Simulated assay, not measured.
Amino acid sequence: MIVKKLREKKHWSQEQLANMAGLSLRTIQRVEAGNPASKETLKSLASVFEIDISELTKRVKMIDIKSEDWQSVPLWVSVGLLGFKERTETILSIALLLLCGLAFFLYGGWGEPISMQAVLWFGVYLLAVGWFAAAVRWADTKGLW
């Protein structure tokens, strides 16, 4: 939405903005519709609008999966993050997974005694969530978010 407001403030058409930024008209339409934009797209737009890229990254959802930083991530981290590339979504997902797992473990038997198989599966589940959390921590320490 900020891109559309900035463009309209300058009285430019989408085609004019696309030409000035060296982007396709479709890319401009996608960004204005609220779809994620690559870092390169945001750099081009920030340059054309003569603003700092941080102004755009605050308000435009950014995908940067193809950046060198994410390309060099170890496989265990890529798999552990389950495709998430935004920290807030990832942390919320971990919390939700833990709550759902705990609820299923505690109430899944509907009053039945908890079996050894349930305890083992819950252990595997906790290891998977731990792996997810470790991948997030690794991305935090490398400053990838």
Rank of each mutant, 00 (worst) to 15 (best):
M1A: 10
I2A: 02
I2Q: 02
V3M: 02
K4R: 15
K4V: 06
K5H: 10
R7E: 01
K9P: 00
S13E: 04
Q14I: 07
Q14E: 11
Q14A: 12
E15I: 00
L17A: 03
N19Y: 11
M20V: 15
G22M: 03
L25M: 12
L25W: 11
L25V: 13
R26I: 14
T27H: 02
Q29A: 10
V31L: 03
A33N: 13
G34V: 08
N35W: 06
P36D: 06
P36V: 05
A37Y: 02
S38F: 05
S38W: 03
K39E: 12
K39R: 13
K39Y: 11
T41K: 03
L42R: 01
L42Q: 01
L45N: 01
A46I: 00
V48F: 02
V48Y: 02
F49S: 00
E50K: 15
E50Y: 13
D52S: 04
D52M: 00
I53G: 01
S54W: 04
S54H: 04
L56F: 04
T57A: 06
K58S: 09
R59T: 09
R59P: 03
K61H: 02
M62T: 08
I63F: 01
I63A: 00
D64R: 07
I65R: 12
K66R: 08
K66M: 07
E68A: 09
D69V: 13
W70L: 06
Q71S: 06
V73M: 05
P74M: 04
W76I: 05
S78R: 15
V79I: 12
V79P: 09
L81P: 02
L82A: 08
L82H: 09
F84P: 01
K85Y: 12
E86D: 09
E86H: 07
R87G: 11
R87T: 09
E89T: 12
I91P: 02
L92R: 11
L92K: 13
A95I: 15
L97G: 09
L98K: 08
L99G: 08
L99V: 02
A103V: 05
A103W: 10
F104M: 14
F105G: 01
F105H: 07
Y107W: 15
G108H: 04
G108D: 05
G108T: 04
G111Y: 13
G111K: 10
E112L: 14
E112G: 14
I114E: 14
M116C: 15
V119K: 15
V119Q: 14
L120N: 11
L120F: 13
V124I: 15
A139R: 02
D140F: 05
D140A: 05
D140H: 07
K142F: 04
K142Q: 10
L144K: 04
W145F: 13
W145E: 09
W145A: 08
W145Q: 07
